[in-house]
Simulated assay, not measured.
Amino acid sequence: MKILLYKGFFRIVSKSGIGEAIRHQEKLFKLLNLTYTKKVNDSFDILQLNTVFPDSLIISRWSKWKKKKIIYYAHSTMEDFKNSFRGSNWLAPLFKKWIIHCYNSGDIIITPTDYSKKILKSYGLKKPVFSLSNGIDTDFFCPDIKMGQSFRIKYQIDPSQKVIISVGHYIERKGILDFITLAKRMPNYQFLWFGYTNLNIVPNNIKKSIQSASTNLRFPGYIDRDELKSAYSGADLFLFVTYEETEGIVLLEALSSKIPVLIRDISIYRNLLTEGRNVYKAQNLTEFKDKIEKILNNQLPNLTSAAHEIAAERDLNEVSKQLLNIYTSQFNNENMQETD
């Protein structure tokens, strides 16, 4: 069994969760000692796709004509496409039709969570849908005191200063407007938002809010995984104010890094994460502000050990075993049946 991990237009998604998911898939292949290629002109038995650009659909159709098996990773839904870029809400219904067309070109569909699986199944997809986490490298994303100190030195943050971080694109769905508002309401804390989106493609209200952000909020832009590990190790709170996700790899990174985590109370995390057990949750700005103050002033219990257990269950080693089960059960059986 040889797998073609198709990476067409990878540069477009390389700095996103999809890009990280693709990198994780390469690690899974290596953990499983599976033969794979990234070259389209190589021989292969299984095509693995991650994006919904037109080139992915083209190679999917071509591979089907060559009688190859196709795995389509479904990272996107109409729901998480909304409130992203200019015109995204207007385009959302068309986007939904397009991704259905793309995903149905595969033999099986893999999506990160039961939540996203439920959404996809509601679309009436014709192919089997499996939920499998994108995974997290828990050996890498772990607390590192020296890297944490380097983070504070780089950003000129006093050791006694409380720091709140988040990671994501500059899009409304990620909660960036709420993050900016919280920074203005809490001037005694330092806020950093890591990640980058060209301001020319975001709505004007996002652009103006970023440009008028308070002085205690910085936007360092995209940083590599080493710097991100430093940030998780040196900050005091990971604040995830997103409104919609299919999984949230950066959340898994934070859980694995044992940094206190405060998230928005949204459907995808209702069963996965429990308020007061492994994370703290809030629903509005007032609740976020209250929880932030209590967490940073040690008025709430530290939940990082329990949070790490959630990440450990999704370690790449564990995910690799589950992925192998999907491969062997589905591609050794021509009558592919969906699991529960």
Rank of each mutant, 00 (worst) to 15 (best):
A183K: 03
K64C: 01
L34F: 15
L94R: 00
A306M: 13
I157Q: 05
T246N: 07
L199S: 01
F29N: 02
H308K: 15
S150H: 11
A282Q: 07
A231I: 11
L228D: 13
N205P: 00
I295N: 06
L94E: 01
T339M: 14
M78V: 06
H169W: 00
N198K: 05
F141G: 08
K7D: 03
I46E: 06
N317S: 08
L132S: 09
D55M: 12
Y189A: 07
A183R: 00
S209Q: 11
P54T: 09
S233H: 06
V279S: 04
L91I: 03
F179Q: 04
S230M: 06
H308R: 15
L228P: 02
L47V: 05
I180E: 00
S84L: 03
L300K: 08
G175N: 06
K321T: 08
P112D: 05
W193Q: 04
A282R: 07
S233A: 07
W193A: 06
N33T: 12
K258S: 15
R218M: 04
R225Q: 13
L47A: 08
I12F: 04
F85S: 01
I18Y: 03
G106T: 03
I259V: 15
I70W: 12
P220L: 03
Y243E: 00
L252D: 08
A254V: 11
I3T: 04
S212K: 02
L125W: 12
N317Q: 13
D315W: 11
Y243A: 00
E318Q: 11
E318P: 01
A21R: 12
I157D: 03
V13C: 04
P112I: 14
R152W: 02
Y327P: 05
Q299T: 02
G87K: 04
I206D: 00
F53D: 08
F141E: 10
T339I: 12
Y232P: 01
T111F: 10
I171N: 00
R270Q: 01
G221D: 08
E172G: 00
N216I: 14
M186F: 07
W65V: 12
S76L: 09
M78E: 15
I100V: 14
T181Q: 06
M1N: 13
R314F: 00
K39Q: 13
G135F: 12
K67S: 13
Q161C: 11
Q156M: 10
V319R: 13
N317I: 01
K154Q: 07
L94C: 04
I22Q: 12
Y115H: 13
L4H: 06
G135Y: 14
